[in-house]
């Protein structure tokens, strides 16, 4: 038995949990805060047997891999001036996964 601890971005967490429950995996969501970016993120606990580690990690990857998105940076120059949206390439997503060995799993 293994315990997968996945730390993912908030915006990816919802779709990942949906995906995991569709595949009948039990998941527990903890809200957490990143140390570096100080941004909120989500920590997921997924208890699985050894052979299910790969599929779960694949699910995490499809939902949370680091990807480039273009957002716009609204430049404010002068009051009354028009906002000029400035396209910006931003890296989002990404996940950190720890896989721990579980000695005993007890369900009551």
């Amino acid at each position: 038995m293994k315990l997968i601890i996945a730390i993912v971005q908030d915006q990816d967490a919802a779709s990942l949990i949906e995906d995991l429950t569709d595949h009948k995996y039990r998941v527990t969501k903890l809200t957490s805060t990143g140390g570096f970016l100080k941004a909120g993120n989500t920590t997921l606990l997924v208890g699985v047997e050894e052979e299910h580690i790969k599929p779960v990690v694949d699910l995490i990857e499809t939902n949370c891999k680091t990807r480039e998105i273009t957002t716009s940076l609204l430049t404010v120059t002068m009051p009354g001036d028009t906002y000029i949206p400035y396209p910006l390439e931003v890296k989002v997503g990404g996940a950190t996964v720890f896989i721990l060995d579980v000695e005993r799993h007890i369900r009551i």
């Binding site: 038995m1 315990l3 039990r26 606990l45 208890g47 721990l100 060995d101 579980v102 000695e103 005993r104 799993h105 007890i106 369900r107 009551i108």
Partner: peptide, 10 residues
């Protein structure tokens, strides 16, 4: 859904 779910980790 178990009332409680316990993982024992070394």
């Amino acid at each position: 859904v178990g009332g409680a779910n316990l993982f024992v980790i070394d």
